[in-house]
Design a protein around this nucleic acid. Sequence first.
DNA 1: TTGACTAATGTAATAACATCACATACGAAG
DNA 2: CTTCGTATGTGATGTTATTACATTAGTCAA
Lengths: 134, 134
Amino acid sequence: MAATQELTKNQSLVFDALTRADGPLSAYTILDQLREDGFRAPLQVYRALDKLLDYGMIHRLESINAFVACSHPHDHSHNHGMIAFAICEKCGQVTEFSDDVITARVREWTKGNGFKPSKTTIEIRGICASCGTA
Amino acid sequence: MAATQELTKNQSLVFDALTRADGPLSAYTILDQLREDGFRAPLQVYRALDKLLDYGMIHRLESINAFVACSHPHDHSHNHGMIAFAICEKCGQVTEFSDDVITARVREWTKGNGFKPSKTTIEIRGICASCGTA
DNA sequence: TTGACTAATGTAATAACATCACATACGAAG
DNA sequence: CTTCGTATGTGATGTTATTACATTAGTCAA
């Protein structure tokens, strides 16, 4: 496995679709966009998404059942802090950020309660600055 | 509106089902449990769930498409801190907690970025203490 | 080269989650 | 009693995700 993940054809197509998009896409939206590239069934999308999630190249937004390309341009293998998302309900823009204090605080809680975390979701839905002033 | 919310028949049935359950239930699981009480269609469940969410009596767990009764026995009208959930992927147990530091930290971010939050989701999935030692 | 194994893909069907559209009932305010 | 808002009943439909099975393609060892 190279520093930057080698992707299969389907994985590339799905990743490119997400990268082109300026916001989150649902699996079925991706499917529609890739029909002309030969995609026929949801599973082709979901399988690629699963791998891309594994590789840390994309994120799933649980609260809206959609996917975004990771906005961190650099390496994905470290930086194990939790990632939070601010999702604008008007324009769909997603802002990704991480906060060491929140990360530490969550870890404290899980440690203190003997809970072994596998995945943590932090999503803030609301109205972004642009949409709020517009 | 009374201190404790007056519920309609359907709302009571759904709330009771969630209260009886020792873990989160999906809307369709609730529907199945309430068939003998006259429930016939998903909408009957979803409408009740919407109201109960409004009243703050239940929570929706976005990452597993399920609902739980709020575990805070006391009043729901104040305590505006964010609520986090630890969800055990083995036994399904959900633990609800709130953390002022996390709440403050999220607020700082949203203020600093001109983002007006409407709903914040924090869900930690993993293995709970009981399941981890068992 | 062949065979065995693993990963990726193609396809249809189905399951699981959620909403729309429209009709009906029922209680409170005037 | 009429009007209005809220709750309800019901069927159809829309959206999201998985199961099951067949096929293709690459890797590696004998």
